[in-house]
Design a protein around this nucleic acid. Sequence first.
DNA 1: AAAATGTTAAATGTTGACAAAATATGCCGT
DNA 2: ACGGCATATTTTGTCAACATTTAACATTTT
Lengths: 230, 230
Amino acid sequence: MSVRSIGPRRATLAGEVRGELERMIVEGDLKAGEKMNELALSEIMGVSRGTVREAIRSLADSGLIDLIANRGAYVHETTFAEVRNLYDLRGAVFAMACSSAARRVAEGLARDVPKAIERNLDQMRKATAKEDTARYYKLNIEFHDLLLGAADNPKAKTIYDNLVKEMHLFRRRGLSVPTNMARSLAEHEAISAAVIAGDADSARAAAHLHITSGFARYMKMLEQDPDVAG
Amino acid sequence: MSVRSIGPRRATLAGEVRGELERMIVEGDLKAGEKMNELALSEIMGVSRGTVREAIRSLADSGLIDLIANRGAYVHETTFAEVRNLYDLRGAVFAMACSSAARRVAEGLARDVPKAIERNLDQMRKATAKEDTARYYKLNIEFHDLLLGAADNPKAKTIYDNLVKEMHLFRRRGLSVPTNMARSLAEHEAISAAVIAGDADSARAAAHLHITSGFARYMKMLEQDPDVAG
DNA sequence: AAAATGTTAAATGTTGACAAAATATGCCGT
DNA sequence: ACGGCATATTTTGTCAACATTTAACATTTT
């Protein structure tokens, strides 16, 4: 067939607005704690208030916003106490996903996963050698996406993605760039080895350790630079 | 304060409708796969279509319904393949929660949790002795709620509750009543012991095993009575 | 008869208007 | 100035009407 559907699958207007709001929040266009005025947003985007309202409602369960009856929506302000809970949850989901990925590799499903992981690891080693943190940051996200995908559990992936987005709302620094690439890489290698070997329990343990270590590293960074935590 | 709001805090009409829809789905009033007609529902409930629409949208991320652009909302039909994914996720969240609960007990927070757990276990032992499955069912839910509460991780509790609701959508039997009370009780005792002792790692392992065993038991039941699985 | 096309009915998507609640404003007294 | 109260404005909640898309049906064509 030579004819292809035109444009980026624009299903509904409200869906598009939702995406735009999400972007504005994650990129800091709308700051944490800020109120989301339905009328103002609708005028900025050139759609009706009802449409903005619907988009806001659809974001309610993502953790990015807080909804208060008769008082509107506010960009969620992630507190220090919540960060630990988010790390705990993220660790649990990620560990489960790696375990599932390993199981699926062992069962012969996900045959192309090992190669994709190896490729990612290779690039990470190079980025680490060059101390290219920006590249490492991208590859790190790709690594996690790869494993979440290999687990073949769409709901887990959705939950994980929402958790990551919500963590970005805690101040603005520190959660994005790994503080210690070499350390992080070593943990990735351990996870990868277990998954490729099809060892579900080892994969779970290694993944859990990876998130736990990430939290510990982050805490240590906060001690050195308390301003970030407020 | 002498006046208390009746039932779960419901400030807005759309929120009330949402609750009613949730009830209709979980109790089977709206069957899995069934289409949710906005106009029909609005007439049944005596509210405007827009309000029903908003309620439906707010349920979108709960896993209970599927939303298709320009085609409306359908009650989610949980497939057999999804059940495993749901079990995996539930196990991960529950294990994490029990681990957190144990840590909090060890840290001296959650001082009244051990007593509450003991009380629940006592009643469970009695229900098991009397083979009172209905009572055991209630206590079982209470047990899980207790630990999710002790973890002090509201988001985890929300996710867990949604997972449980979604699992109910897989046919109608088998997921509610434990197939083997004695076995289940023994696992609860193991979890409880670890939590009360403040041993986070043991609690995590015991909780994980509990969900895994539950899945295995369920699978075995399906083998004996394949009609349930379709 | 089966497939493709044209037409009609029904459902969803979007908008603007009205009602109710919350916030801001201004007045008054001390 | 300050705090309390009535009032005005703003904002959210709800509803009804219009536009667009989808689904169902009848008709034509092969």
